[in-house]
Amino acid sequence: MNTYVAGVFSSEAKARAGLRKLWQLDEDGALTVHGAAIVHRDDMGHIHMSEQDSDVGMRTAIGVGIGALLGVFARPAGVTVGALTGAAVGAAADAVTQTRRAHAAEEGFFTLKHGQSAFVAEISEDWTAILDDALAPMGGTIYRRMNTASTNAAFGAHYYDSYLYPYEMLDPRI
């Protein structure tokens, strides 16, 4: 059974480091990442999703879908690791925008406070302690949600193709 996982951090740089660690664990065979992305909530409360300029195919359905993606992690199933405590569970993402195309989107519930960033990913893991232990020194909070038919129904038919990259997405600003 696959799991959706979100690692919430105090900055985008830390979230990217967390994502790097996630993919490293994949390279080591400790878990398998099926797709992942970085999201950031700015000081105005708007959610942005990092993307590669090149990946036109990823942008097509991002508007509505991202609300559902964030909603996946709405409930407080999180495990706190490191210094941060459970963040703003249930806080409404009052607007959802995409980096370059301002889409109005469904409201979602997410655990990001203003200014925080997270990696979100679909993974397969046999022991949750592997990821928890790897991320503990980096701080942040990990949330998990099982990938079930009802969870996926919220995404729509092409959810996966729309915003989770099947490999580590480099910072588009680099």
Binding site: N2, G29, L31, T32, V33, H34, G35, S124, D126
Partner: peptide, 9 residues
């Protein structure tokens, strides 16, 4: 990736 996950599991 699903196949890889199954093998690793």
């Amino acid at each position: 990736s699903a196949a890889v996950a199954a093998a690793r599991s």
